[in-house]
């Protein structure tokens, strides 16, 4: 089992873990300087989540080695969700 623990996939796990801690910290209750700052915090949490998704998709699901149509589709979906969520946060309050 040892060689597996030193595998790059395990290093990725660490990155995902740290990213999760970061977003958890960003999302914890802190006094917000202004409305804009609040929205910015929310969107940065979203960005971290999207990056985590992309890392899982490209590396764990091995999409980085997949045909381009699949890579484009997955990236398009990530973009769609990012645009949808962030625009609601920016514009609709």
């Amino acid at each position: 089992m040892r060689p597996y623990l030193q595998h790059p996939l395990t290093r990725l796990w660490l990155v995902l873990l740290l990213a999760t801690v970061l977003s958890w910290w960003l999302g914890s209750d802190k006094p917000v300087a202004s409305h804009q700052a609040g929205v910015l915090t929310a969107v940065s949490i979203l960005v971290v989540a999207i990056i985590k998704c992309r890392l899982v998709i490209r590396n764990y699901m091995e999409v980085r080695f997949a045909p381009s149509w699949l890579q484009w589709t997955c990236d398009a979906w990530l973009l769609l969700n990012f645009a949808m969520v962030s625009s609601f946060y920016w514009f609709a309050i």
Binding site: G27, A42, I45, V48, I50
Partner: peptide, 13 residues
């Protein structure tokens, strides 16, 4: 990864 988004959307943002 769907959970990542649910966690962000419902719990954190």
């Amino acid at each position: 990864f769907l959970w990542f988004l649910i966690f962000a959307l419902l719990y954190l943002m």
